[in-house]
């Protein structure tokens, strides 16, 4: 079943066509990676899905609902969790409180004035943190955390939304190699176990080819290849783009 459908998506910035009529789908329990050289339109494409950029034309549907023109906030409400290329967490709060905030939002409890946050959804938060191996860090302030741990906090916050769709912008950027593999393995495991559709952009080809179920390759705003890692690996056009033109 398709969770995310992107069709004929286009965007130009001041005459430069950043994305041209790109279409693809992501199914539940599937990891789809968007790759491509710098300037290929990965980020633009990604940001049109998460609501930060409004497309010129084309459509993005999540669970059958059209989302182009919706704000990131509304998109979260459709059951989408996301992580950022440069982590964005609440620095003054502890790890657990960060996750609690996401849970409070999921449960529509943000407007309550009376109860204390410390008592709300604490077990649920701890359960998520345990799943991500962050139990030890739960009481620490995010401002004091290592970068890799912040990525895990973001993932926990995304999962707090019980997402149908997980959007990850460069999920392993800035991490050491061993850590990357570990985090992506964990992510893939969770995505399959919870039947989440996951879309991510990534520079590191090892990560992509090890964990993605399918890969979309963009170049100069155009989708030039799509398929399993094996298919993409042998695709002539992709080899052209990455290994230089032989034409």
């Amino acid at each position: 079943m398709n969770i995310l459908s992107v069709s004929a998506l286009s965007k130009s910035f001041g005459g430069v066509q950043a994305v041209r009529a790109v279409s693809f789908n992501v199914e539940a329990g599937q990891l789809l990676a968007i790759i491509g050289p710098n300037g290929a339109g990965k980020s633009t494409c990604f940001n049109m899905v998460n609501g930060q950029i409004r497309p010129d034309s084309g459509s993005v549907t999540i669970g059958g609902v059209e989302v182009s023109g919706k704000t990131p906030r509304e998109i979260w409400r459709l059951g989408v969790g996301r992580t950022f290329q440069i982590t964005a967490t609440f620095a003054s709060m502890t790890v657990r409180e960060n996750v609690q905030m996401a849970l409070l939002s999921y449960h529509h409890r943000l407007a309550s004035w009376w109860p204390r946050v410390m008592n709300l959804y604490r077990e649920e938060a701890d359960e998520l943190l345990r799943r991500l191996g962050m139990s030890e860090q739960a009481h620490r302030q995010c401002a004091l955390l290592a970068y890799g741990d912040l990525k895990r906090v973001e993932l926990a916050m995304a999962l707090a939304n019980r997402p149908r769709l997980l959007l990850m912008d460069e999920p392993t950027a800035g991490m050491a190699a061993a850590e990357r593999i570990e985090l992506m393995a964990l992510t893939a495991e969770i995505v399959r176990e919870r039947r989440i559709a996951a879309l991510f952009t990534e520079h590191d080809m090892d990560v992509v080819f090890a964990h993605a179920d399918r890969i979309v390759v963009l170049n100069r705003g155009l989708l030039i290849a799509e398929g399993s890692p094996e298919d993409v690996r042998v695709d002539a056009q992709v080899r052209d783009v990455y290994l230089g033109s032989r034409r």
Binding site: F84, T89, F90, L110, S112, V117
Partner: peptide
Amino acid sequence: SPYGFALRAGRDSPLRCDAIGI
């Protein structure tokens, strides 16, 4: 309270707030 935390969240990271539906 959750509301107070949401305010602090907005101070710490408006981007993240937006992304988790605040």
